[in-house]
């Protein structure tokens, strides 16, 4: 067991961070808007090979989780977590750059659906690849573009592929949540250090310190569970536990950081909402926290 990145893993983190620092971030996210899509960023990451690390033997899915965490932290306006984690694990080298993931059993809108060249659809025990025949975008305050889709199935990935998709989807959700939790907590800590009321920094008040500390512990737990689930090849138990914990953390942190930030936290100019709006979308995706908790129990104890 080793919690340290080696040279190659660190090089990936550095390189992806460089791309995101130049091509993503809060200003870029605001410019594109909630319903926008960052083709340039997605293409840059794809061309550099960072969306296909999961199948690189020397890197593996853990490397893809690192990319997903970073993309979420930097407000990437593209479906990077699902593409980098689910795409290679289900479709290998044939994964299209613009990929969305949907569950046939759930009628809700699909994240990034209107921008997808193909959709991976969970259909019971099987997953299949489909093309989008019609996309109806919806208005949503939850930080991502969403659309209802009409699709045409192209090919099935065979019996058992449904479980594979389920588990990697949960890992991707956990990783994406972990990145946003990290950003939301760090932003709030910084704000409460600087914001003075009662002639002192708000961050010096113990009642607020304890809530920030608890939020930080949630965020750290979510991060390491996502990484372990990826390292273990998304076993059903590890993937479900990672998603369950992350979704619960997203609910708590996604609301409490607003409470701690006060009125300015609700403004669009304040970066906090860029993370929290997404946390609330992610925590209800794919059945949400209860579905992940049930899956944890069934995987662990049958």
């Amino acid at each position: 067991m080793d919690f340290t990145l080696d040279h190659d893993q660190q090089a990936i983190v550095d390189a992806v961070t460089t791309i995101l620092a130049k091509q993503a971030g809060p200003e870029r996210a605001r410019a594109l808007g909630t319903s926008g899509h960052d083709d340039a960023l997605l293409d840059a990451l794809a061309q550099a090979g960072f969306l296909d690390l999961a199948n690189e033997p020397s890197v593996g899915p853990l490397g893809a989780v690192l990319v997903a965490e970073l993309a979420s932290l930097h407000h990437a306006r593209a479906n990077i977590a699902l593409r980098a984690i689910v795409g290679p694990m289900l479709l290998g080298a044939s994964a299209p750059t613009r990929l969305a993931v949907a569950d046939a059993a759930r009628p809700g809108p699909v994240r990034f659906g209107q921008y997808a060249d193909a959709v991976l659809i969970l259909d019971g025990d099987e997953a299949h690849v489909a093309t989008v025949t019609a996309a109806t975008p919806i208005d949503s305050p939850y930080g991502y573009p969403f659309a209802h889709l009409d699709t045409t199935p192209m090919r099935s990935l065979g019996p058992g592929s449904g479980a594979t998709l389920t588990n990697w989807w949960r890992v991707a959700l956990a990783a994406e949540i972990a990145g946003a939790l990290d950003g939301a907590v760090a932003h709030t800590v910084q704000y409460l250090r600087e914001r003075h009321q009662f002639k002192k920094p708000l961050g010096s008040l113990q009642a607020l310190q304890h809530r920030l500390a608890e939020a930080f512990v949630w965020a750290e737990g979510a991060r390491w569970l996502a990484r372990r689930a990826a390292f273990e090849g998304a076993t059903a138990a590890a993937a479900a536990a990672a998603a369950a914990y992350a979704a619960q953390a997203a609910q708590l942190v996604g609301t409490d950081m607003h409470q701690l930030s006060g009125a300015i936290g609700f403004t669009t100019e304040f970066d906090l909402q860029l993370w929290t709006s997404r946390l609330h979308a992610l925590r209800v995706e794919f059945g949400g926290v209860t579905a992940h908790q049930l899956a944890t129990t069934r995987a662990q104890w049958g």
Partner: peptide, 24 residues
């Protein structure tokens, strides 16, 4: 303390002996 800290927080980097992994 780890280079593995992909995070909003500044880090103190230190080279590990091997890759991040969680196996016994």
């Amino acid at each position: 303390l780890r280079r593995g800290a992909v995070s909003a927080y500044p880090q103190s980097f230190r080279l590990g002996r091997g890759a991040m992994e969680f196996a016994w």
